[in-house]
């Protein structure tokens, strides 16, 4: 169990939050020109690093805002949230 610092509400228990996975995955600007492989990459392929991951969280039981978190996936230490 760990605390996540919501940029709007401050530190709260992890159970108040919903997880959104890897951050920075950009929706394709021209979907019609994409190959099947590019779609697969956008939809399914993920970095899944053993170390620092920038990810999305939503304070679903609080202010309901989405924000990004930099977390070490091995130790669960959270570096920054914004």
């Amino acid at each position: 169990m760990f605390l996540i610092k919501c940029p709007f509400c401050g530190s709260r228990d992890e159970t108040e939050f919903a997880y959104g996975g890897e951050a920075g995955i950009v929706r394709p600007s021209d979907p019609h020109s994409m190959s099947d492989e590019e779609w697969a990459d956008y939809l399914f392929m993920r970095r899944n690093p053993r170390g620092i991951l920038t990810e999305l969280w939503c304070h679903s039981a609080g202010c309901r805002q989405w924000f990004t978190v930099r977390r070490d996936t091995v130790s669960n230490r959270i570096e920054t949230t914004n």
Partner: peptide, 18 residues
């Protein structure tokens, strides 16, 4: 669980999450 990290050594992206 460590497949992504090893595949990344060969620049291969996988759809798995640990």
């Amino acid at each position: 669980g460590n497949t992504s990290a090893l595949a990344a050594m060969a620049d291969i992206r996988l759809p798995v999450q640990s």
